Structures are given as structure tokens and as C-alpha cells.
Simulated assay, not measured.
Amino acid sequence: MASRVYGSPGVQPANRLPSLAIRSSNWQRWLTAGISLALLVTILTRLDEFGFRQAFSVLPATPAFWLSFAAYYLALPGSEWLIFRRLWTLPASGIVPLLRKLVSNEVLLGYSGEAYFYAWARSHAKLVAAPFGAIKDVSILSALAGNLVTLAMLGLAWPLLANVAPQLHGKTIFVSTAVMLGSSMAILLFRGRLFSLDRAALRSVFSLHLLRLAVTTVLSGVMWHLALPEISIAWLVLLATLQLLVTRLPLIPSKDLVFANLAVFLVGHDNAVTMVVAMIAASILATHLLVGLMVALPDLLARRAA
């Protein structure tokens, strides 16, 4: 029996099928504990190198900025909670493994969070009997939505690149566009073999991904504007496009720091724009470290006590 699929007729919730319960195997326990340990070691290492005072000194102390920051940070795990809530009837506590998934992807290695979340879902068989297909489909649709939104932003930013960032106006953009178009076309071409969920569920998941990307793009612009009110619309569009391009890079952790480094490369070290972008990226990393400690340490202590 496959996992519960949103919109599929005749499929009963997994929690009504106790006979399908899957016991957590040793490899699942070792995987979740290993990711938690690796996350904790990495966080403690980076905490020793991180300058919190510098990160927060140039950012505004207004409630509007930090509310936008919090909404930006929680948009991805929040949207994924809504998705898996519909697919699996995920409880409110399911936000915790989704936060760990986010931090693992950003602090350790891209897609390490998916590996953890799969192991977590397998160990909670009352929620879902076969989670792999749903997790795979959600990840593929996230990539597809990201590609499409990035291409749309590239089209919007193209007239501005020649004046604001001429080094990006040419081969670099064409190569990036070709890669995104090729991967998106491949997903659409082989969708019959790639996806496990039904069409209604796929549409719902894809719509939530698009909404989340639109919200985070707007929130990024709001944060930059609040931190630097004199920033032009051209720079807001360019930064949003560059940020989306960086998120398309696979298997790279700390994409916000990569984005900040690219901004420094584009406009120089002394520009106020790069300072604000770098400090927001540093604040996001600091939040990753704090959230990672909060979600990884209790799990390791519980396993040690057991």
C-alpha cells in the first residue's frame, strides 16, 4: 500500500492501518543519529568562527525587518509542513524534522536533509507507510518551480544587467538558462515515470512551491529595502535574481553565504549593498546554527539515555 495521497479517491489514512506499521530499523536509527551528530559538530565548529556582533551591527532593529526575516526563514519548512500535512496528515510536531531537514541541507550538504527526513518518516509508520515517493515528488517539484521562477526573474532582470552588472550579461546567464531549461524539460518529458503522486496532489504541491518562492522573493526585497532604504528597484531585482540563481546550485551548503560572496564580487567590498547582503546572510547562518542546536541536541541526548 502506498502512502496516503492527497486527492486520491479510496485511499485511507495510514494511521487507520496499524498492520502496515514499519518498525524503525537499525540503519534508520544510525542515519538520524549520524546526521544529528554531524550537524552538532559542524555547528559547534562554526560557532567558534562566527562573529555575531558584526553580523547584527549593520542591520536595522525595527520590528518590521525582523518579522520579515522570521517569515523568510520559516517559509520553506512552513510550506513543506502544509504539503506533508495534506499528504500524510502530518501533526504540528512535524515542523521539527522539517526544520532539521532545512538546517542539514544548508549547514551540512545539499539533500542530506531529505535523507534524514526519509529516515524520520520511515520510523513514523503510523503517519505513512511508504514515504519515498512523496518526498521525491516534493523535491522534484520544488526544483521545477525554482527553475521556472528563476527564469521569469531572469527575463525581468535582463534589461538591467547590462548597466548594473555587465559581467553577468552574456555567457554566464546563457549557460545558467540552458541548464535550467534542460532540467525542467527533462522533468516534464519523463513526468509519467518520475512522479508517484496523483495529478491533484502534484498540482497542489507545485502551487505551494510557487507561492513560497513568490513570498520569499518579496520578503528578501523587503529586508534589503528596510536595511538600505536608498537601494534602487534595479538592484532589488538584480539581487533577487542572483539569489534565485544561487539556490539552483545543487549539493552546495550555505547558499546564502555563496550569494553574499557573489554580491561582493559584483559590486566590491566597500559598497553598502554588499555589506547588508553579507550581514543578512550571516544572520541566516546564525539562525541555522541556533535552530540546529535546538533540534539536534535533544535527539542525541534522548538516544544516549535510551
Score class of each variant (00 low, 15 high):
153 M>D: 02
65 F>M: 08
107 V>M: 05
167 Q>H: 07
138 V>A: 04
59 L>S: 03
101 K>R: 15
141 L>T: 06
67 L>P: 08
142 S>G: 15
74 L>K: 04
57 S>V: 11
149 V>C: 04
126 K>Q: 11
151 L>Q: 08
108 L>K: 00
145 A>Y: 02
86 R>P: 02
137 D>Q: 12
152 A>V: 14
59 L>Q: 04
86 R>M: 11
66 W>I: 10
177 T>C: 14
111 Y>P: 00
56 F>S: 08
81 W>G: 14
69 F>A: 11
101 K>T: 01
89 T>A: 12
142 S>K: 12
85 R>E: 06
132 F>C: 02
104 S>G: 07
155 G>T: 10
145 A>K: 01
156 L>W: 13
127 L>I: 13
98 L>M: 14
152 A>Q: 09
79 S>G: 11
99 L>N: 08
107 V>C: 01
100 R>Y: 03
139 S>Q: 04
167 Q>G: 15
119 A>E: 09
186 A>V: 14
70 A>Y: 02
141 L>Y: 03
101 K>A: 01
112 S>H: 03
91 P>C: 12
123 S>M: 09
76 L>S: 05
131 P>E: 09
121 A>G: 10
139 S>Y: 03
85 R>D: 08
144 L>N: 05
52 F>E: 08
141 L>F: 11
145 A>N: 03
75 A>T: 00
130 A>C: 07
153 M>E: 07
156 L>Q: 11
158 W>F: 08
155 G>Y: 07
102 L>P: 03
108 L>H: 01
128 V>N: 00
68 S>Y: 10
115 A>G: 13
105 N>E: 06
172 T>I: 15
79 S>V: 07
179 V>C: 13
128 V>R: 01
166 P>M: 04
118 Y>F: 15
178 A>H: 10
54 Q>V: 09
174 F>R: 08
101 K>G: 03
138 V>T: 03
56 F>N: 04
81 W>T: 13
161 L>Q: 09
133 G>Q: 10
52 F>R: 12
136 K>S: 13
168 L>Y: 06
181 L>I: 15
93 S>M: 06
63 P>W: 06
61 A>Y: 01
96 V>E: 09
133 G>C: 07
132 F>H: 07
59 L>F: 04
132 F>A: 14
56 F>P: 03
123 S>D: 12
81 W>N: 13
176 S>N: 12
120 W>I: 04
161 L>H: 03
84 F>N: 09
144 L>S: 08
146 G>R: 04
158 W>N: 04
125 A>G: 15
151 L>T: 08
147 N>A: 15
74 L>F: 12
166 P>V: 00
102 L>Y: 13
